[in-house]
Write a protein that binds this DNA or RNA. Sequence first.
DNA 1: ACGGATTAAACA
DNA 2: TTGTTTAAT
Length: 628
Amino acid sequence: MPVAKPELSDSRVIAHVDMDCFYVQVEQRKQRSLRGKPTAVVQYNSWQGGGLIAVSYEARKFGVKRSMRGDEAKQVCPEIHLVQVPVARGKADLNDYRNAGSEVVTILARRGRCERASIDEVYLDLTIAAEAMLADNPPERLETISEEAVKSHILGLEEFPVEVGSDAREKVRHWLTRSDASRRDKLLACGALVVAELRLQVLEETEFTCSAGIAHNKMLAKLASGMNKPAQQTVVPFSSVSKLLGTLPIKKMKQLGGKLGTSLQIDLGVNTVGDLLQFSEEKLQDYYGVNTGSWLWNTARGINGEEVKGRLLPNSHGSGKTFPGPRALKTVANVEKWLSELCEELSERLQSDLEQNKRIAHTLTLHAHAYKGTRSIMNYFHSQEDTCPQVKLSGEKLIQDAPLLSPSENCLGSGGHLTLRSTEPRIAHCEEDTETKDSLPLDRQEEDKEMGKEKLPDKETSICSSPDAEVYRGWEKDQTESCGDYLTEKIRDTLESEEGKKSNKEKGMSTISRYFQSQHSGSLLKGEHASTSKLREPFSLSDCQSELLQRNSLARGESSVDAHLCSQIKLKRPAWSYDIDEIDQDVLNELPQQIQEEVQAWLRPQKRSNTVKRDLGITRYFLPAKDK
DNA sequence: ACGGATTAAACA
DNA sequence: TTGTTTAAT
């Protein structure tokens, strides 16, 4: 929430341009017979027809929505055409869409500063162009206004009790050319003309339609671009802002669609942006911190100082895939295979980035994460018994899991992705060719049948862990010498004791903490070992993959736990630690009585809301007088 | 069987 | 700064 205090009267001219169901348009341009027909783009059609990621407006009339499955879409709209996202290396390949997006950006950047906000959206700062037009050739002097401009929607235009009987376009034409308008309105009118022109150029040169919003800041422009779709544009005059925001549901606002918006609703009873007006800036700051508080206060008033960044290129590339449920990455070979695929894709994209933009990456990030599952702790214990009966150190294939991920989010599968970030474009001197590709394992086991489109019988439902995040930075030497032998020993101990346990589980697990302790010390000790040993040149997959595997404990986001453990490991006194706040009562109830009692004893007296800033409680506790 | 795959930016 | 979390499309 950039909160640069904006001047009160912001007379910039900002546009937000949003491609209409972009992926569909890209596919329709490839397959012209699909134009005008109900169409959707799906990825991976093997499970329930695949997931919809873009839906044409014809199909929307039937109630087809994003996040539907292909099968579902067919039910509500039998004649829908489902087009598959291209697949490369067994995963969705979005390059066609990226490239199409670049075509559009190139055109839209012609008239002012342009920021590529996503694959199909841009912000434009047209202030200079609008000012120039107003000075040289203002709309009021034009004898004709383009058809596209005259089709604009002007928010609040109905409020003007001007000429009755004239049709909508005539009213718009009048508003755009009014000589007695405020300067701000005139600038917006100029902006609308420019945007209409740009949209026409986009259509002519790419065959894509788009919608746009024209306003005095990014927030309002973004809001407006979505108000009249497809292929239309909407202008937000300053005078119509308060009415627009007054009844706008708070969640519709950019940045307020998630937890912050929910907190506003639940904690402050704010349901519309207008409701926010009652709160003083100080009060909002008390609740949400100074930055967010001020941002909210401004937002309520339609004030937003964020600048349009001149950026036509993405500043990072990522490649990832999720492996739901039965597809969870369970074997080393499988992890290797997918890491290899992801690395290859990334490498390819970096190569083209280098060629096209003369820049190189400086950061490589690898992470994997788990997602919420419905499985309880007890199920987990059983499934571990059933599907991971023997966990041998040398038994290559099985990945040993950490048990008890997040209590309420047991890990069922994982999604991972690789990212490379490049900094400012710079000349690339690729003397040292630390190429990823060379060291990738070449054994392609086609055991995962998704690539071949066959179905794998869903037999096992074991829970295998997902690795946590790991970041490689630079190629420095290892600083903190890790106690390799000790760790190896420790791991073997852990695994062996685990094996012994399987036949005699109940007895072996006299206390839950003991059980967890042995588990966590094993996997995390390894994790510590891995994370302190830096990558050697050249970057090899096996390095990265072994780190990945060794880090496989902890569900997503338990970094504090992670750090905590690591520090203990350095003292060679591993212990189990867990954020007890997260334990869910329902899950707890499924545990044996003895364990329940033990867990209860760990529970802290107070549980905090995770929506309102933690500061609040603390601030109030120590500084009770502050609030008004 | 998680909407999936990306991106960006705020936050600690 | 670096790693994590949130939010968006």
